[in-house]
Amino acid sequence: MRRYRKKPKMDQTKPDATFIKTLGKGAYGSVDLFSYTKDDGTTFHNAVKTTDSEDYNSIEREFRILTKLRGCHGIVQSFGNSLRQETDSTGKKVYKMAIEYAAGGNLTEYIRINRRLSDSVIKDFTRMILQGLVSVHDHGYVHCDLKPANLLLFPRYDQETWFCSYELKISDFGLTVKAGDESVCWEDSSPFVGTPLYMSPESVRDGRVEKTLDLWSLGCVVLEMYNGKHPWVGVCVDDIKSRLLSGKAPEIPRDVPCDARLFMEKCFARERGERGSASELLLHPFLNGEGKVADGDAGGGVRRRVGLRIRKPPSRFEDITTHGPKQKARLRNGPL
């Protein structure tokens, strides 16, 4: 029997905000950028996710999970003590959630602009994703929709050195469930827990999910960073289902380095137990062949930002990503 949660009290206060632009739209609503003015006259930016009453359960679940993950590395942060309830221009009830604004866009855009990423950049982004997954899994959740579009980039700009570093965080927890639970979206007619291109074989068989599902999705993300293309490119959804059930995984190009291939093959293991855990993957030679693992580091990984030098500093912080975060030849790593 399906249990219904009592809706929490909504935040009815309405701070002064100025709409800037729409950042994106999806099946469960839209995300817009707003600027806010403090009492001292300074301004800051937040992204605001909006959905209508029909999709209330999704945004309420996401807000509840993000609240529990506040302060965790690699996770997009939410703000406020509750969702905001408003009415749109047509008088329809909507719900809003304020989250961090990722001025660097998402990983999909980054890959599109840069095509194939360098080996060092891929390793750094993979470390960041895994550290976010350690936080998610340690709280008993499975993200269920890990893909480049849900991995956001946050530029950190140093005005003195003209150095721009990027931090990657996991976002969009609308499909997230507790490990061992059934997915909220799985159906016989559409047997995928999340986005088909990034889903694991077990998600096709039933709607019950475990943490290792996210690790298969991670392998797909790493493959896309190397290949510059979606996994299963040119394959229709029905064929993806049949290929997964027949024991196939996305094809890894021959020019991928050996350690990266072994990492992805571990993510694509048919037996979910052979994929290990997010913490164990942080110790994989693919991520630690060039550096020593820091003693006492949470999850066993060295956390870094991906950085680049720009020839001319932008006049405004937002100008860094006007045309997207383009990869330069002089990429280097810097400690957090």
Rank of each mutant, 00 (worst) to 15 (best):
S246H: 12
G247Y: 11
G247K: 12
G247N: 12
K248W: 08
K248S: 13
K248P: 00
K248C: 08
A249F: 05
A249Q: 03
A249E: 01
P250D: 04
P250F: 06
E251R: 10
I252Q: 05
I252H: 01
I252S: 09
P253F: 08
P253Y: 01
R254A: 15
R254L: 13
D255H: 11
D255L: 08
D255I: 06
V256E: 03
P257Y: 15
P257C: 14
P257I: 15
C258I: 10
C258E: 14
C258Y: 10
D259N: 09
D259Q: 09
D259G: 00
A260W: 08
R261T: 05
R261C: 04
R261V: 10
L262F: 07
L262S: 12
F263W: 08
M264P: 14
M264L: 14
E265D: 13
E265A: 00
E265K: 13
K266A: 02
K266F: 00
F268R: 04
F268Q: 03
F268V: 04
F268M: 01
A269N: 13
R270D: 00
R270M: 05
R270F: 07
E271H: 04
E271G: 00
E271V: 05
R272A: 02
G273S: 12
G273N: 12
E274F: 08
E274W: 07
R275T: 10
G276I: 04
G276V: 04
S277L: 12
S277C: 07
S277H: 11
S277P: 07
A278C: 05
S279D: 00
E280K: 09
E280P: 00
L281N: 05
L281H: 06
L281A: 05
L282Q: 14
L282W: 01
L283C: 09
L283R: 14
L283M: 11
L283W: 01
H284Q: 07
H284T: 04
H284K: 02
P285H: 02
P285S: 02
P285M: 05
F286H: 06
L287P: 14
N288A: 15
N288C: 14
G289S: 09
G289L: 01
E290W: 10
E290Y: 15
G291F: 05
G291T: 14
G291H: 09
K292W: 00
K292A: 11
K292Q: 07
D295F: 10
D295E: 12
D295W: 07
D295S: 09
G296P: 11
G296W: 01
D297T: 15
A298M: 07
G299H: 13
G300N: 12
G300M: 08
G301P: 06
G301C: 11
V302F: 00
V302R: 04
V302K: 01
R303H: 08
R303A: 07
R304M: 15
R304K: 13
V306E: 02
G307A: 15
L308P: 01
L308N: 09
L308D: 00
R309D: 03
I310M: 06
I310V: 13
R311L: 10
R311N: 07
R311F: 05
K312T: 12
K312R: 10
K312W: 04
K312M: 07
K312F: 05
K312D: 05
P313M: 14
S315Q: 14
R316P: 03
F317A: 13
F317Y: 15
